[in-house]
């Protein structure tokens, strides 16, 4: 034994690079600045015009505020319902006794996704005339936003290392405890990515609520097109885009905050 390898020292082990908080927040700071600048530019542009009667009907504070709150309210309510349905469903579909249903259900959901959102909401509206417009809108948006959350919940739970689960079981954790303390925390990043996607999709589909008269900022765009007022159309479009980008931005921050430490 002439060769004696150098002993490995623990000091040689790379430590996980501490993330510079400045960099992390810098990444998040850009989007609100961009959106803020766009909204300010829009405000200055609109203020520089003398508004006619039709334009004033859409472009007044009271009307816009009510549409924004409509829009946000519908989005949040729909997303809450999506989470309530999709996450438990995703959990169920990854339990051993139901696992075989996961693939067929995802296939069906994928096909459902091919149905255009406009088609779905109009179909519901013309088929169920007795339902209120808000119910129709929520059902349509719900159907549309469930897939990303369901898919990511399943994928997130499936990607948890089997050996981690096995050793948790081996130490005597109950199935419920393994789900709550091991599987779900480790699936959080993937599930949150799905929630973020669903939120953005929902902000977008809620803009189509105007076609069935359920309100939201889509009304402003619609008014602009129908009255051929570019100022109104532009305002509505910029505000919907800004809302989507800000919701995406906020969801991104929540994603970073809720990600368990130690994962990356």
């Amino acid at each position: 034994m002439a060769v004696i390898a150098e002993p490995r020292t623990d000091a040689a082990v790379p430590r996980v690079r501490p993330r510079s908080p400045l960099l992390a927040y810098g990444r998040h700071a850009l989007m609100p600045l961009l959106v803020g600048a766009a909204l300010l530019a829009l405000y200055l542009y609109v203020s520089g015009h003398e508004l006619d009667r039709i334009e004033r009907r859409s472009l007044n504070t009271e009307y816009l505020t009510s549409r924004i709150f409509d829009h946000l309210g519908l989005t949040l309510l729909t997303t809450a319902l999506i989470l309530l349905v999709a996450i438990p469903a995703g959990i169920l579909l990854t339990r051993p006794w139901a696992r075989r249903w996961a693939s067929p259900i995802l296939v069906i959901a994928n096909i459902g996704q091919a149905l255009p959102s406009l088609g779905l909401i109009v179909l519901l509206a013309v088929s169920f005339e007795t339902l209120g417009v808000n119910q129709i809108a929520i059902i349509a948006f719900l159907a549309y936003g469930i897939l990303p959350v369901l898919r990511n919940t399943i994928a997130g739970l499936q990607q948890v290392d089997r050996s981690v689960i096995e050793s948790a079981r081996g130490m005597g954790m109950t199935r419920g405890a393994v789900l709550r303390r091991i599987e779900l925390p480790l699936a959080v990043p993937v599930i949150l990515a799905g929630v973020r996607t669903a939120l953005v999709i929902t902000v977008g589909t809620v803009a189509l609520a105007t076609f069935v008269g359920a309100g939201g900022l889509g009304d402003v765009i619609n008014n602009g097109i129908n009255s051929s007022r570019d100022l109104v159309l532009l305002s509505g479009s910029v505000m919907v885009a800004a809302l989507a980008l800000l919701v995406d931005w906020a969801a991104g921050i929540v994603e970073d905050l809720l990600k368990p430490r130690g994962l990356s």
Partner: peptide, 17 residues
């Protein structure tokens, strides 16, 4: 990514101008 985040109705609307 920003393009894809902008809702379709808003993007169509923005491009009409």
């Amino acid at each position: 990514g920003i393009f894809l985040t902008i809702p379709s109705y808003a993007l169509f609307g923005l491009l009409i101008t």
